[in-house]
Design a protein around this nucleic acid. Structure first.
Length: 300
DNA sequence: CGTTCAACCTGGGCGC
DNA sequence: TGCGCCCAGGTTGAAC
């Protein structure tokens, strides 16, 4: 579920913890299954307890909680969380207790009245039903390897037409498949790729090398605007309703979906049925009429 | 380069 | 009710 808008909503919802000290860390399912945690849970716990959260960052679809170094010279660390399909960061109660993967208790660094009244909740949970998510505690080299420019392209919220064209213009891959490549552009997933291409009027099957400069510009503009609107609406909570904001609110951008999950339903623009195809083992939804090869722009 | 497949997991929905 | 199957927001690595 979590793509850029959902992960950004998580970041905004837990950034209040900047300045808080970590009181305790637990990995409740540790004995049930070797969950994807590196290094070992006890090592993470030893390195985190007593430390202060400096800031909460987002790199593509990953959250990186910056942990201050200790006074005895220990370096800054980052707790990097990848929600993957069903992971959630929560400050509220978890939907089901058995899927809580990590539990962090926090105490305010300063017991100021303002802080106490604005953040009554001092617990941060990583909840993950399917358990495909990962938690890593990394130093600076690790952070760079996991979230640096070698791994992630420009953030989709600020991507430019020139970013797209310089990275993809020579590729023969279908544009929809390329949009899911985090090294090309960071943050787009299966839902938003479909929605972006519909709004840009571009056929998801079109090879990247056939897009014109004008189309790259339009694609970038639509990407930024659509994702910004999705962040404003706190992401998309689909039918199964697993996705929640950290405060347990539902997303609202699913009400704006034009093609995703709408196979067979009439296109809102032309009334022809939305089609579902499979590309790179993922569903692609699009309108064959509104998303002709070159969209509204003329191409050869 | 690029694509395809399997794997990692749980659980909802469907047809029978 | 239950069983078997297909599907799902993501990522990675092996094989071709």
């Amino acid at each position: 579920m979590p793509e850029l808008p959902e992960v950004e909503t998580m970041r905004l919802g837990i950034s209040q913890f900047a300045g808080c000290r970590i009181q305790s860390v637990a990995f409740p399912r540790q004995s049930v299954r070797p969950i994807s945690v590196t290094p070992r849970p006890r090592t993470i716990i030893a390195k985190l307890v007593g430390r202060v959260i400096v800031a909460v960052h987002r790199y593509g679809k990953r959250i990186a909680i910056e942990i201050a170094g200790s006074e005895c010279g220990d370096a800054t660390h980052w707790l990097v969380i990848e929600p993957r399909m069903t992971g959630l960061l929560l400050v509220a109660d978890a939907p089901s207790p058995q899927h809580v993967r990590m539990q962090i208790q926090l105490s305010p660094l300063f017991s100021s009245v303002a802080k106490a009244s604005t953040s009554p909740l001092s617990q941060l949970l990583f909840w993950d039903r399917r358990g495909l998510g990962t938690v890593r505690l990394l130093g600076e080299p690790g952070l760079l390897a996991a979230c640096g420019p070698e791994r992630l392209g420009p953030d989709a919220l600020i991507v430019l037409g020139s970013d797209y064209s310089s990275r993809l213009h020579a590729s023969i891959r279908a544009i929809k498949v390329a949009l899911l490549d985090q090294r090309a552009v960071a943050g787009i997933g299966n839902i938003y790729a479909a929605e972006i291409l519909f709004l840009a009027g571009i056929d998801p099957r079109l090879p990247c090398c056939r897009l014109t400069g004008l189309m790259w510009e339009r694609l970038a503009t639509v990407t930024r605007e659509l994702l910004a609107e999705a962040v404003r609406l706190k992401g998309s909570t689909l039918g199964d309703a697993t996705y929640r904001t950290p405060n347990n609110a539902l997303g609202e951008f699913q009400l704006q979906h034009r093609v995703y999950g709408r196979q067979g339903l009439p296109c809102q623009a032309c009334l022809r049925p939305i089609q579902r195809i499979v590309q790179a083992q993922r569903s692609t939804f699009f309108c064959p009429q509104c998303q002709k090869r070159s969209g509204q722009s003329r191409s050869q």
